[in-house]
Amino acid sequence: MTYSDLVNAWIQELNIYPSSEAETLVNWLLEHHLGLRRVDMVRFFEKDTLPSGLIHDFERLKLGEPIQYILGHGPFYGREFEVTQETLIPRNETEELVHLIIKENPGIGNKILDIGTGTGCIPITLFLEMKEAKVYGLDVSERALEVARRNAKKLHAVVNFLNCDILSDHPAISELDVLVSNPPYVPQKDQSEMHRNVVDFEPHLALFVPDEDPLIFYRVIGEKGKSLLKKGGRLYFEIYEKAAKEIKELLEKQGYDRVTVHSDLNGKERMITATWN
């Protein structure tokens, strides 16, 4: 069996994903275990020498477990971040949110807070990409914060991580230039519309909100943001595409200016920005 034969066979077995996505996952898994680039694997591949861990991990992949959890890391903004099942997997939409913050805040020494930090990918990236930023990240999960702290140490980023339940506590931080959050926003009733590898494996604490109050985090963070942000400070949210209009109206009623909905590269309304004056 050649390398191509194995890839094609495993793509067929990995039928819970579209074939193009399955091919990417299979190649990613093989590269991780064999320590070779794809072009080298085609030349030097020997099926009889496959490590046992590779077969075990492929079985996990067939059950729908995200490959980032299997490998223990995932890419974000050109860097590798540790991920565990205590954290959400960093996604492309969040990279776009980070890029927007960097583009719109080119000054030196921005003071930034990320609420619901998870892996720490947002504040760590902002610290590394911006000039002399003073960055904070908070999360209700202490286990998630442990992952975030390891990521910051590995990537040589200085981020102050805090344990805080934003729904009941008020961070002891003020005069922020930037307040950013990718909070839980999927109503419980929409679980059936989501891919099983998200619902079955990613932390529900970071995903879902009550059907009777789906904007709870946007409302609370928006309200607390008025005392956290300095005059002219900017609020950045990743949002549920189905709720863009409602979130925009909510922030306008709270007194924010220049409330703007932004579409991602797929044309979906996934980000919103606002200014506190």
Rank of each mutant, 00 (worst) to 15 (best):
I16K: 08
Y17V: 05
Y17A: 09
Y17D: 15
Y17Q: 06
S19T: 09
E21N: 13
A22H: 08
T24D: 05
L25E: 03
L25N: 15
V26S: 15
W28H: 05
W28C: 12
L30T: 01
L30K: 12
E31T: 13
E31N: 13
H32V: 10
H33M: 06
L34I: 01
G35I: 04
L36M: 10
L36F: 07
L36A: 15
R37Q: 08
R37S: 12
R38D: 10
R38C: 12
D40K: 04
M41S: 15
V42H: 09
V42N: 04
R43K: 05
F44V: 05
F45R: 07
F45Q: 02
E46K: 11
T49K: 11
T49C: 15
L50I: 08
L50T: 13
P51L: 11
P51I: 08
P51R: 07
P51W: 08
P51S: 13
S52F: 11
G53I: 09
L54A: 00
L54I: 12
I55Y: 02
H56R: 14
H56I: 03
D57T: 00
D57I: 00
F58Q: 10
E59N: 08
E59P: 01
R60L: 03
K62G: 01
L63K: 04
L63V: 15
L63Y: 04
G64M: 10
E65M: 09
P66V: 04
I67S: 03
I67G: 01
Q68W: 02
I70N: 00
I70H: 01
G72F: 05
H73Y: 14
P75V: 10
Y77F: 12
G78F: 10
R79N: 03
R79E: 11
E80A: 04
E80T: 02
E82N: 10
V83L: 10
T84R: 12
T84M: 11
E86R: 12
E86D: 13
E86M: 13
E86T: 08
T87M: 12
I89M: 10
I89H: 00
P90C: 09
R91Y: 00
R91H: 01
N92I: 06
E93K: 08
E93N: 09
T94Y: 05
E95P: 00
E95C: 07
E96G: 06
E96I: 06
L97V: 04
